[in-house]
């Protein structure tokens, strides 16, 4: 299992694979790892990303325009695994995985050196077959916990997750926000009761201040839209832009820890 957070907060970096190309996605992922990312979430673009805000919607559209698919994403994972020990998670909507075949997907992911998967629109109740296949291939299923999840659901989410649990900072879709909602801290506290796994907080983390703030109550922060936005805004220099941005987050976090 390569899911391990070296510092606090650990850094989980999301990228939409194939935006603008799979080669660039691989370079960006390597840059993110060099800038301190512990886990890379490799996003599989989907035509109807209901849980995503405009930034990731646009990235998905760009990636799909030149036919990015799950096979390509797994290929990126394989190349990354040859060069790095960082945690690798496939982040997808259910339908692309379903059409590929649940078991075939898990076999191919394990073969590529992937550590786990997160399927946005697959809640624990519907996940029996998926969990069986994931287990058979020693992959870590990561489930989402939301501020609206009641206790029983948090317990189930914690029980079925491996590697880490992903706590959504607020009700809503992905995208950068000025402030982290107050929901995040109390959700992490409620979740803690049910699990010893690391808890990563995501949805809206985009500034060094927010990153440091998450470090105060959770094990890791997930940064997604803010990375995807840098990729969008820096054509030709994607990896450098993401590297600079992520260093600013991890650097600040270390300072904050150092001061206290």
């Amino acid at each position: 299992m390569a899911i391990h957070f070296k510092q606090r907060p650990g850094l989980v970096a999301y990228i939409t694979c194939g935006d603008p190309t799979l080669d660039v996605s691989r370079e960006v992922a390597l840059a993110a790892i060099r800038a301190g990312a512990d886990v890379i979430e490799l996003g599989v673009p989907f035509s109807d990303p209901v849980a995503d805000g405009p930034v990731i919607q646009r990235a998905s559209e760009r990636a799909l325009q030149h036919g990015t698919n799950l096979i390509g994403v797994l290929e990126v994972a394989k190349q990354l695994r040859q060069q790095s020990n960082a945690g690798l998670i496939i982040f997808s909507y259910l339908n692309p995985i379903l059409q590929f075949g649940l078991d075939k997907f898990c076999a191919a992911a394990a073969e590529a050196g992937v550590d786990g998967a997160l399927v946005t629109d697959l809640p624990v109740e519907e996940a029996a077959e998926y969990l069986r296949a994931m287990k058979a291939h020693k992959l870590a299923p990561v489930f989402l916990a939301a501020p609206t999840s009641p206790e029983k659901r948090l317990r189930d989410v914690a029980k079925h997750s491996r590697g880490f649990v992903y706590a959504i900072s607020r009700t809503g879709i992905t995208g950068a926000r000025q402030e982290l909602a107050g929901d995040a801290r109390s959700l992490v506290e409620r979740l803690r009761v049910h699990t010893k796994l690391p808890i990563a907080v995501g949805f809206g983390v985009s500034t060094p201040e927010q990153f440091a703030e998450v470090g105060g109550f959770a094990d890791a922060a997930v940064v997604g839209s803010a990375i995807v936005q840098r990729i969008e805004q820096n054509p030709g220099q994607e990896a450098a832009a993401v590297s600079e941005f992520l260093s600013s987050l991890t650097g600040t976090a270390q300072e904050a820890v150092g001061k206290s």
Binding site: A145, A146, R153
Partner: peptide, 8 residues
């Protein structure tokens, strides 16, 4: 098949 936020 929906995001966790909508389950409740």
């Amino acid at each position: 098949y929906v995001p966790e936020t909508l389950m409740a």
